[in-house]
Design a binder for these strands. Structure first.
Lengths: 345, 345
DNA sequence: GTGAAAGCGCTAACAA
DNA sequence: TTGTTAGCGCTTTCAC
């Protein structure tokens, strides 16, 4: 190709100096309009492509932000990622994706080798649970960094108040008159932040206890935050010999969808036989008619990106974020328990 | 932090030269074992972090591969992405994600500004439809490049034979005795490669024609390759006044899931009332009992990554790929049409 | 097996 | 407004 070298080439052809060319190309104000035009023109003709490595070496900035995800195939992470991506792109930054999970996941390598290679100017971390060594590595990362979704000790974090949202969801069911409520949540998702599932379960228990209802241990199932897991968990619930539950609080919409499919497949109806409430605000919710406590992960991603971007530019570091918003969206998957099902308690 | 400078620092402390330190750190053979050990040790103590910008400038390689997706929230792209990611990570490469779609999508910027910044050593492009300007830009990209999923003129491509897989799926229904078959596919997905939906529809029509069955235009619907789209399309089909269809060939599993939900919601059964066959091999298939022609996008991603990686290392460029494999997975969403529904034709 | 020196392509003072 | 001069931190001949 033509683009032999770069800025130097343009300098030659225009009879200007490298510096002026550089300034012109970056649109700095201190360049005569004619000069700038000439430079741009010859740059185009040459098919000039800047070297981000050279610029990065000279400035110490790569104009790249790293995003760490525990896995890509979850609606929440994807949506946050989209938000981060939109914001970064608007700012002219590129996004390096560090996927800790999935087949071939290799946290050690990701952390030790990739992340810390001075390759990124900042980092947005989505719901990852760190090991001690990892936490130590991150400590050395002297760039803006923010965690989204699931509090992580020592790093500032943004997301919904998981306990609060779970309490709200549970209360929603309690208010309808349910007392026999089960919970489908998550547990030891490899590499995923435990805070989220734990806080949601805790919120559930808090609300139930406050209402004076005991929850048997086997009414709290692990749906692994996946559609399939939600389906399986609900089947387990339905297979119970003397089924008493009238409602289920599911910790994510994807699991809730699976749960709904399981209920219908068993020949039961939602909400007549079983009420289901989720968390998230997944775009497929309307199809299933799922009532849910919706959050806005896209917005959370945007905010996270905007924050680190501002800090890269020298803005003072925020030490904490306000909790992200959430709201109840009623779509009919919850209702008062049928009289026949009313618990004797 | 401690990591003031880098290699120079280590050179000082060990009394060696920068060159030797560099060689030791990269594990080159021409370094005495003791020397190498000393270097690594002090590097660790210093918390040394290499500068990828400097290395990249010196070598002309960034050890980064770009992946372009039309949107992140589709199972197919996510899965290919996972495959690419796994392979890149194993090779010590980082992945820059270029998302053309989504809110805030800005193709122009992505192409012109980011992609061509010499930031990546190779590119894997997933099912994107290029404009003329974009094609021209890509022509200038003198690095390994491969398109996955949907042929694109002028660039080598890998994926299933979309016409063939559609013919196979349609024949599957025909072989069961169906004649009144509808098709839910895709159309003008913004920025997505048109080849895939078009080829699948064409395959469908080819098989139908070969079997001597005409297909009314309104039996070919646009499901936008999404769950919601599939659901909506199926509802349209079910709302037909004198419904005659007994089977639907859906061009993707996600749409097929939506279609199944719609059928069941209408009080009909799959496959007794309506048979449904999909394409993809989505992991949620078992839950819905979806019969599908499965491909392996993860593997396609791995292959694509492996290919460009090999070429970065100097391997001769492959000019074409064999078609990706696919196979029928029967799960019970298809059956012979019920006698009552048998078409008179 | 190790060192010296040049340079990758750009930016950033400092002058002019 | 433009040019000069140093680097940014690493790799890479070419000597030794």
């Amino acid at each position: 190709m033509i683009s032999v070298s770069g800025i130097q080439e343009i300098a030659h052809l225009t009879g200007l100096s490298k510096s002026t060319v550089s300034r012109a190309l970056r649109g700095l104000p201190s360049v005569a309009d004619v000069t700038a035009a000439t430079v741009r023109k010859t740059a185009d003709e040459l098919g000039y492509i800047p070297s981000s490595a050279a610029a990065g070496l000279a400035t110490g900035r790569s104009r790249v932000v790293g995003v760490v995800v525990p896995t890509i195939n979850r609606w929440f992470y994807i949506t946050v990622l989209e938000g981060v991506d939109a914001e970064l792109r608007a700012a002219g930054y590129d996004l390096i994706l560090f996927n800790l999970g999935g087949r071939g996941g290799d946290r050690e390598r990701v952390f030790h080798r990739s992340i810390l290679r001075k390759r990124v100017d900042a980092m947005v971390i989505l719901g990852v649970a760190f090991g001690d060594a990892e936490r130590e590595q991150l400590r050395r990362f002297e760039h803006p960094m923010v965690v989204v979704g699931g509090a992580e000790e020592g790093v500032r974090h943004m997301g919904v108040d998981d306990r609060a949202i779970a309490i709200a969801a549970t209360n929603h069911l309690l208010d309808l008159g349910h007392t026999q409520i089960a919970h489908i949540g998550g547990e030891d998702e490899s590499g995923m932040n435990l805070a989220v599932p734990l806080d949601r379960r805790e919120g559930f228990l808090t609300a139930m206890t406050a209402a004076g209802h005991a929850v048997p241990g086997h009414w709290m199932l692990n749906g692994a935050f996946s559609f399939r897991g939600g389906y399986a968990a609900m089947r387990t619930l339905l297979d119970e010999p003397e089924r008493a539950i009238t409602a289920v609080f599911v910790a994510s919409d994807e699991m809730a969808f699976g749960a709904i499919v399981a209920v219908r497949e068993a020949g039961l109806r939602v909400p007549e036989d079983i009420s289901i409430v989720g968390i998230d605000g997944h775009e497929n919710g309307p199809v299933y008619g799922l009532t849910t406590f919706a959050q806005d992960p896209f917005e959370q991603g945007v905010t996270a990106a905007r924050t680190v971007l501002a800090e890269i530019e020298g803005a003072p570091a925020l030490s904490a974020f306000p909790s992200a918003r959430y709201e109840l969206i009623e779509r009919g998957s919850t209702a008062a328990p049928a009289p026949a099902n009313l618990s004797p308690a």
